[in-house]
Design a protein around this nucleic acid. Sequence first.
DNA 1: ATTGAAAGTGATATACT
DNA 2: AGTATATCACTTTCAAT
Lengths: 156, 156
Amino acid sequence: MNTKPKTIAIDGIDKKILRVLTEDARTPILEIARNVGISGAAIHQRLKKLEKSKLLSGSKFVINPKVLGYSTMAFVGVYLDKAANTDDVVKALRRFPEVLECHFTTGNYNLFIKLLSIDNEHLMHLLNKNIQSIEGVLRTESLISLDQQIDRQILV
Amino acid sequence: MNTKPKTIAIDGIDKKILRVLTEDARTPILEIARNVGISGAAIHQRLKKLEKSKLLSGSKFVINPKVLGYSTMAFVGVYLDKAANTDDVVKALRRFPEVLECHFTTGNYNLFIKLLSIDNEHLMHLLNKNIQSIEGVLRTESLISLDQQIDRQILV
DNA sequence: ATTGAAAGTGATATACT
DNA sequence: AGTATATCACTTTCAAT
């Protein structure tokens, strides 16, 4: 099975389109067209090409967790016991909406997760009650983010 | 200074709007209107309310790093020497587009970053040449993500 | 690849309930 | 908060280059 993605030729106009749309996904195509100086139909076709190549994999409105009261972000290394079924652990983690990312990683941890909590008390509850009680989880190690200085996508 | 965000009342219709738009930021308002059974103007007004409350903080097209050849994601803990100017280190890190996130963290590390690389060789170069040579950086500890199983936003 | 035009659809403001 | 309506803007397709 060939899982290697198609390489795709991206020129300066594609880059402009991508940079505008990664900043604001609802920017009208015609506005981009006026800015780069080619027709709306051309931008439209380029967008289709970029979507077909999978370089653009969709668009999302961004929710600000702070407004929902989530003020604490943490990274948690998870140790599993040897007999643990990793897929089941991930499935269990997925049930907690606070878990935003979950990675299989090299190194000491089996899993590495990024999560949000309301406050430190909520974080403690998530770790000690929710996550620790998942079958197969031995222990966790946490790193609390006091402030996030960089948050972005890869540049094109 | 009051930095606490305004609390905002969110009902079922708002949730539907948010869930649709966090999946696809370009979903037409009128399509959402047809689905929830109220007028487009009403959805439009609710959207304005959600944006004004900062619960919605924008929208982004999502770039698939794999298509650009970035196959490795890593988390890196950074130790700084006591005299280091943290802001300058962050500024230096920002110059490397591969650095997607940078956090001040509790615990042993001073900074914790998430980054993308083309392959392991590129990662080594980023760590040993680029990041290690930033003034104030003592050493780094890395965790490589072999596979990301969960990647999502907080649910409303 | 890009264009211009045409047809369909969506966004937005306003006045009213 | 919601609707109805009107106007303007945007999207999408297509034949032509």
